[in-house]
């Protein structure tokens, strides 16, 4: 006798409905913050106003739903703490991702001036080698910003020579080059505080860096991490609104796993009886 199977398209349909409905009819499930997200938040909080920090947008549109809300929340937090932000990207499309967020945030932070409070230095090819060179001579790597303005004409870049002049580095990473390279060079070689926001797929490979050695200071893990950060800074965004859908989708997946296992065991039992 053939084993009972469920057409997988039913699962897709259930998931589609399960994700769409909570986006339309918001439930507002509570968001609990985790230690790793609080560590990133605290790192930004503890950095003195006026310090220069570096955020690297190491992702492209394929990872936008998870990493974009993190980038947005982190920039909002840095702006509110009066930190000067150097934006760069080890992925070509990262520059556009950053610009998209900056364009969005500009009306909310009209007093933030490009070149004085933040600057987009653009994409740099080379990954680990580029970060290594940044540690020696920052301006040797970044001769212009992403608009082509010479680095000498950018006020906030005047005192930046190497990682010594940067309070911390955050990599929003969807793979390689990304957080690993920043940890290995900026963190472990030059001793800078490094933190990161990563896609859900990468969490299990990046999590070991959050350890006693503080190779990473906290970690924002996927959409949940972004939602937690939005909660901590008090600016709910797309990650927060997606959390109801995420929880319901997980519930549906768990139910299907249980149904699948029960059906598997029942079929196995039947087959044994028939033999």
């Amino acid at each position: 006798m053939a084993a009972k199977t469920l057409d997988r398209r039913w699962i897709f349909l259930f998931l589609f409905i399960g994700v769409a409905l909570p986006l339309i009819f918001v439930i507002g499930l509570p968001i609990e913050t985790t230690e790793n997200v609080r560590a990133v938040y605290q790192m930004v909080e503890d950095t003195p106003a006026g310090s220069t920090v570096l955020i690297s947008f190491d992702y492209d549109p394929a990872s936008k739903p998870e990493l974009h809300p993190m980038g947005r929340a982190l920039l909002q937090h840095c702006f509110e703490k009066d930190l000067k932000v150097i934006i760069t990207a080890l992925w070509p499309m990262g520059v556009m991702m950053a610009n998209d967020i900056l364009d969005d945030l500009q009306p909310s932070y009209p007093n933030k001036v490009y070149g004085q409070d933040y600057v987009n230095m653009g994409f740099k090819a080379g990954g680990m080698v580029t970060i290594q060179a940044m540690g020696k001579h920052f301006k040797g790597i970044y001769t212009t910003d992403s608009n082509g303005t010479p680095v000498e004409n950018i006020p906030m870049m005047k005192h930046i020579d190497n990682f010594e002049n940067i309070a911390f580095v955050i990599s929003l990473s969807a793979g390689a080059p990304g957080v690993k390279e920043w940890v290995q060079v900026a963190g472990d070689t030059y001793g800078r505080q490094v933190s990161s926001g990563v896609t859900g797929v990468s969490v299990s490979s990046v999590m070991p860096y959050v350890n006693e050695q503080k190779q990473l200071t906290g970690l924002l893990a996927g959409l949940k991490g972004a939602a937690e950060y939005e909660y901590l800074i008090g600016h709910p965004g797309t990650a927060t609104s997606g959390m109801d859908a995420q929880s319901l989708a997980h519930l549906i997946i768990i139910i299907f796993i249980i149904i699948g296992n029960i059906t598997y065991w029942r079929n196995k039992k039947k087959q044994k009886k028939e033999v």
């Binding site: 998931l15 996927g222 859908a245």
Partner: peptide
């Protein structure tokens, strides 16, 4: 699984 659902949410 969480990452894939996040993409669908996006």
């Amino acid at each position: 699984a969480m990452a894939r659902v996040s993409l669908l949410i996006g």
